[in-house]
Structure formats: C-alpha cells, structure tokens
Design a protein around this nucleic acid. Sequence first.
DNA 1: GTGTCTTTTGAACATATGCTCACGGGCTGA
DNA 2: TCAGCCCGTGAGCATATGTTCAAAAGACAC
Lengths: 316, 316
Amino acid sequence: MAASDSDKSRLDDAARAGWLYFIAGHTQDEIARMLQVSRASAQRLVSLCLAERLITFRLEHPIASCMALAAQLKERFALVHCEVVPTDPAAPTGAAGIAERCANLLETTLRAETPVIIALGTGRAVRAAVERVTPIDRPEHQIVSLVGNILADGSASFFDTVGRLADRTGARHYPMPLPFLMGSEDERDRMVRLDAIAKVKAVADKADLKLVGIGQMDQKAQMHVDGFVTRDELTEMMRLGAIGEITGWAYDAKGRVIDGGINRRLTSIAPDVPARAMTIAAALGPAKIAAIRAALTGRLINGLITDEATARAVLA
Amino acid sequence: MAASDSDKSRLDDAARAGWLYFIAGHTQDEIARMLQVSRASAQRLVSLCLAERLITFRLEHPIASCMALAAQLKERFALVHCEVVPTDPAAPTGAAGIAERCANLLETTLRAETPVIIALGTGRAVRAAVERVTPIDRPEHQIVSLVGNILADGSASFFDTVGRLADRTGARHYPMPLPFLMGSEDERDRMVRLDAIAKVKAVADKADLKLVGIGQMDQKAQMHVDGFVTRDELTEMMRLGAIGEITGWAYDAKGRVIDGGINRRLTSIAPDVPARAMTIAAALGPAKIAAIRAALTGRLINGLITDEATARAVLA
DNA sequence: GTGTCTTTTGAACATATGCTCACGGGCTGA
DNA sequence: TCAGCCCGTGAGCATATGTTCAAAAGACAC
C-alpha cells in the first residue's frame, strides 16, 4: 500500500514534470526548482514520464504516417534502408516522389570520397532517379548495369541508365552490351562466360549499392510491354508461379527465384539471396503490391523506396 | 508558386525531423545525417516542427488537466502562484489534497534562510495544512494571525493555527487575542488602536506570505456555522451583496469589499486591494465557486490552491 | 547582367540534458 | 535489533541542444 502510494505520487510528479517540460516548455532546471527536487531528479521524472508512456506525441502531418510505415517495413523485413513518400493524389502511380528519393540516395552515395560501385537495374523510377541526379565530379566511382540493354530485335534499349549517370559524374561505367534474353540456356551460358561480360559481372558483384525496380508478372508486365519477352514467355512464367521480377529474374509469391522458363535464358546478373550488398528496390502502385511483398519476404532486396498507399498495402 | 513549394518541402522536412526526434528518439546529429543537412539545420527543422504545431503532445494522466487549468487560472487572473490538484472522487469537498499542497508551500517558504513572515487566515484547508507541516527549526521566522480567535461568548477558538505552526518551527508568533467581532464600529476602532494589537497588524503588514481560506456567504457560511456571526448578521451581509469572505471581510460578486454590516465591526486585518504580498487562497467545493471567482476578480488574492472540479467551474 | 536586399547556412560557443558513480536512508527478513 | 539489500539521490562529467554571428546563396528591381 505504501509502495503503491509512493509509486502513484511519483507518477504524478512525473506527469507534472512531463507537462512542464513538453507542454509548458520549461527547462529541467526550472522544473527542479518548482517541484523542489534536484535537477537530476527532475530529469529522471521527465524520462519516467516518457518511459511510462504518460505522454504521447502526435504528428499532424501527412509525413508522419509515412515515417511510421517506413519504420514498420524496416522492422518487419529487417531492411537496412526504407523510405515511404506521400502518395501523390493526382497521380497515384506516378514515380516522381520516389524518384526524388532515389536520386537523393544516389547523390548521397556518390558524394562519398572513397570509391564506390553503384549497380543499376530496370524500372521507371530508377531511370527517373538518374535524370534527377545533380552533376558531381567523381571519376573514381564506377557505375555498372545489371541488365542487358539490347532488345530481341537487336536494337539498343531506348534509355541508357548507366550511361546517363556516368555522364553526370564522370565515373567509369560498365553497360552490358547484351541481349536481355538469349535463345537458349546453352547460348546464355556461353555468352556470360565471355571475358568482357564476366568482367562486368565481377564489378557488379562488388557493388556497394544496387538500385533496382520491381516488375509485376501479369498481363501488363513491363518487360512484356517493352518488348523484352513475348506473351507466350510471360504466360509460361506465370504458369510457373511468377509474381514479380527484379532485373528480369522472376520469382514466386514466397520470393523464391524460379528455376525454369526465361530465367534460364536471362543474361542479367542474378540477385543474391539473401541480398548482400545494399539492394534497394524502388516501386509503387497497386499492381506491384504482391511482387514487392514477395521480394521482401524472399530477401531479394534489403531496402525499399515506395509510397504511402503501397507501403500500407504491402504491410496489410 | 516556387515559394509555396519550397515552403511545403521545408515543412515536410520539419515533420520528418520532428518525427525522427520525438517519435523515433534519434538525436539531432543523427537526423542531420539522415536528411543530409548540418546539425544546426536539423535543430531548426525540429524547432520549426514545434513552432508550426506540426507535433502536439498529449499527456494521458489526470495531472495533465490540472496543470492546464492552473496555467489558465494563472493567466486569466494574473496570479503569482496557482496549483490545481485532482479532485478526490471519494470526497469531492475534502480538503486533504489542497492541504497537502499548502503544507508544501509553507514548508518551502519556511525553508528560506532569510527571516520570513507568514500570515495565516481562516479555513479548514489552512488548518489542515499547518497540521501537515514537517517540523523544522527556524526561530528567526515569524508567524502572525490575520484574525481574532475569541468567539462572541468569550471562549477561545478551538484551533490555534498560528500556535501550531509556531510549535513546529520554533518561530516567534503573534496570535490575535481579540474577539472576531466587536459590538460596534467605535469599539472596534478603539480596540485595534491598542498598542498590542497595532503591533500585530504592523507585523502582518510586512508578511511575505498570506495563506487564507475563502468562505462563501450563504446559509451554510462557515463563519455562521462556527458561531462567529449570528443568522441575522449573515442575512444582512447577503442583503448587502456579500458572496464570499476572506478572514471575515465580506465582498460582493465583483470582489469589492463591502462597506457596511459586520465589516465595520471586524477586528481582522483587512485585505490589501489589490493584494501586495503573496496572498494565496486555499479553497474548493461547489459552494465556493462564486466566492473564489469574485476574490480573484477583485484582486483580493494573487494566488490560489484548489482542485480540478472547482478550477474548471471558476473558469467556466 | 548587376548591385542590393533578404534569407539561409554552418562554425563556434553557451546552455541544457543524460548518465555514471558512490553514498545514504529506509525496508526486509532473520 | 541489526545486517543486507534496494532504491533514490546529488555531484560531476560527457553529450546534445539552442543561439549567435558572419558569410554565402537566392530573390528582385533596375
């Protein structure tokens, strides 16, 4: 009884101290004088107030829920990096918001004094991010592509992400002058053993940061829309359980890379499982929710940049 | 447009910083690194977040509303001191809670090294407060009574507040060995001119702290219940507009001391208007609401110790 | 363009805060 | 009653925070 009584009055004092500190804005010194205790005790009361959750903070701003979602994703999937931006009501699938953050991430990485290797995958957000990177002179860095950029018809992919980023930084760059898909597994194997290609792979394996997009595997799959795979190839992968892809590598709902189909003819550099280097995906939109969740679950990535609506859905 | 845009992104960052600081518990240094700004800027963002009220604090504790009420009372009536304690649900008119705080106030004052003069008025809370004061040896202090303690029938008032407090401190004390009420104004004037009484008044005038009760002037008025005034005297004062009394001095709803009735025959020391010394009233209960509000309005007191329910009603 | 005015920035300093440690007072269980 | 334990305390220090000031970066008028 005596204990509970003194506990109670201690909590009362803690609440008082918390009020005076956070709400009235007094210093702990003033509070100490008011409550007739030493400053050290006032400090203890304030932390007790926090520890006992007598006081709560409420952030009245769209950003607040984004931060909370990012923290949850980071926790749930053991991510090394996660950012959630507010969903743009005008364009819920627009990549502008996340591209901005990706660009920022790239700039931060590029700003390093020690040489770094950045690997880039596919995706609108990745392309848009590169466009937004402010030029900075860093010739000692290296930029490497994770995917071939030659279409089935032999033409070069319209957007040379690696080249653009290299332009802006003066960094050495390693595009992958390869068809995205070879005709057979055998052909693929021979191709990737070529010295020039093996060197690109060697650089990519040492990448400090991999920034990739995530594609969903459905009728609207980007890799089909862009002409990298035929409808039949897409359908076969879906039959094999494919739900998403990263740099072309299709995986199922558990995030397991599928052994079969086009995965056997891909020239792209395969993801590490679990991801070793900082491997950050940029993706958003209702269509990609399952693909994102699977990639996180399977540890194909250890970082994510997305928007609020998508983050909420992935966690649901 | 550009301005509003940059403002917006600045607020976003402020919200982010606030979230990271208050909710995630990071230091401003960490936040600065995360947001790629200097620590000083991070600090600015955090204060901006506060200034823009993006973040709000909520204290989930009964004390919280008490603190808020005390702050409002202090502001509204320009008080030098105000405390509000939680209303005891078991005894809504019990003075225990406020007596505790009064005792604390007395102890704080008594703890001073330099000599102080404490004047005491009437009221249950004042009596109870004195009872709770921990003995402390302070012979250099002085305790003085603001009211006579002899009843109309010549017997001494049952509770000698001043004497009790003096016992506990070893302080010199000045009781007022006078009837509360004299037979006529003339008689009163002669009495208070007596050397012994004039000296008590001189001490009281120099008091550093006056702790008084507030009585309501209604059929249940304490001064009548205790036998200090007759029913007729009480009724006359009410007719003259009396709504409350402090040390016997009756005042109206505007807090103006009434010129007439028993006020002309009172031996008690009259309140300063406006109060000069720290003059703190201890009172609570539904019956006293109007009396408290009037005393505050008329500046008869510049401090108040009450409970939550009463504070709320006084402000309403 | 160009100069001026305003705003924002980071360095440096002054304060405030959080933490560790050794001490002391009060409860507990022989 | 008394030793032992535990909690709370304050001193003192390491860190973190808040503020000031001069200089840079923009904004704006011409």
